[in-house]
Write a protein that binds this DNA or RNA. Structure first.
Lengths: 204, 204
DNA sequence: CCTAAACATGACTCAACTGTCATGTCAGGA
DNA sequence: TCCTGACATGACAGTTGAGTCATGTTTAGG
């Protein structure tokens, strides 16, 4: 392992610096998203945006740190997207459907970003946990409020939040990423039916 | 990247060879499970079981190939464990509970194995897909049969299988791996309630 | 007991890649 | 216009670790 001095990297002080930093971030997104953390190289990133290797270290102290920054960025993006998608829903079940659709749409549109998030589990576990904890905290609050309004059955909101995130995750893997297209509407209906009523027969 | 000749590695022909191969596999399980694929080294594996580096290449053509073999092994182990756990259940809902408990127990007991499987996503995506496709195929068949017997509401068994695998996965992450202990019984109850009846209020 | 094939060794090769640094170049305020 | 700090460069040092191979040791069948 190379000698890491934890050198301080100052935030850019000029327009030019800001632009370069941003170029590097966008190139890193592509490099990491396509090759994965380990196969990606700083040389690849800097080549991807036409700057010298040394320039990278003016803005980021290490390959790992830029990765963390990327994951945090993506978390913000996803949460904003979903917040906007569910705003103005009539009831919680409509919010669930819109939220799930927004998530699936996000994964379909940005498979590279989703890959970066998932691989974060093995690059920096803490940033991966934070990503999901942040997501779950907000989600559980919403579920609790909906239950208080009587739109959902009473129940453990945290368990529900993690369970539904799990459903979304595997749905994204199986139907978007591995099948290469968005799930059919019937599939989405089946998922919503499951989330709403579970698998047991309902008394008529 | 080193020169890979795809040299043929013959299966061991003697007791001694078989034992050595097995020692290497077990050491690899520990090395990969604790350090992750990239930080793990062949030198670490061979040191871990007291053989020379060259011996590794008598039995496995590459670091990646032994990883694949490990993932396939783990898939077999998990499927066998769960098959045994649900055998003799009275109805499908009991099978669901026993299966989930067996899975959680497996993750708790073998966190290293679960880590290996998850990281496989970024080492060899195909072997990761196969792992889940195999799991899902068997599970969906069981769900279909249960629905045919009237123990479950009619519905898309494949969607249900992937959804419930997702629930189990995130449950394992959140409550076992990150909290370091098995989920409380109330948590398991909440999960089963969700799987059985969903989140909507039931008509009284 | 002999011998050939199987097994084992570990020093070595070699490419890859992170992070450094001495040396420039640029932008904008005085 | 000049000067200063911010920005940029790219060759380079230093380390790592996968896979090789010439050589030695063990095993088991005849």
């Amino acid at each position: 392992m190379p000698d890491i001095r934890h050198r301080t990297v100052s935030k850019p002080a000029t327009k030019r610096g800001e632009a370069t930093r941003e170029k590097i971030l966008r190139a890193a997104e592509i490099e990491f998203g396509e090759k994965g953390f380990h196969a990606a190289s700083v040389a690849g990133i800097t080549a991807g945006c036409g700057v010298a290797q040394g320039t990278f270290y003016i803005y980021f102290p290490s390959k790992e740190e830029i990765y963390r920054e990327l994951v945090r960025d993506i978390g913000h993006q996803l949460r904003r997207t979903m917040r906007e998608a569910v705003a103005g829903s009539g009831d919680q079940m409509e919010a669930e459907r819109r939220g799930l659709e927004a998530f699936i749409d996000f994964v379909s549109r940005h498979p590279r970003l989703y890959r970066i998030v998932q691989e974060a589990h093995f690059v920096d576990e803490q940033v991966y946990r934070d990503y999901y904890n942040d997501l779950a905290r907000g989600y559980a609050r919403v579920l609790d409020e909906a239950a208080a309004r009587g739109e959902l059955a009473p129940g453990d909101a945290e368990v529900r939040a993690w369970a539904i995130m799990g459903i979304g995750h595997f749905l994204g893997l199986r139907y978007c990423l591995w099948q290469g297209k968005q799930p059919r509407p019937e599939t989405m209906d089946a998922v919503m039916e499951f989330i709403g009523h579970g698998i047991l027969p309902r008394p008529e």
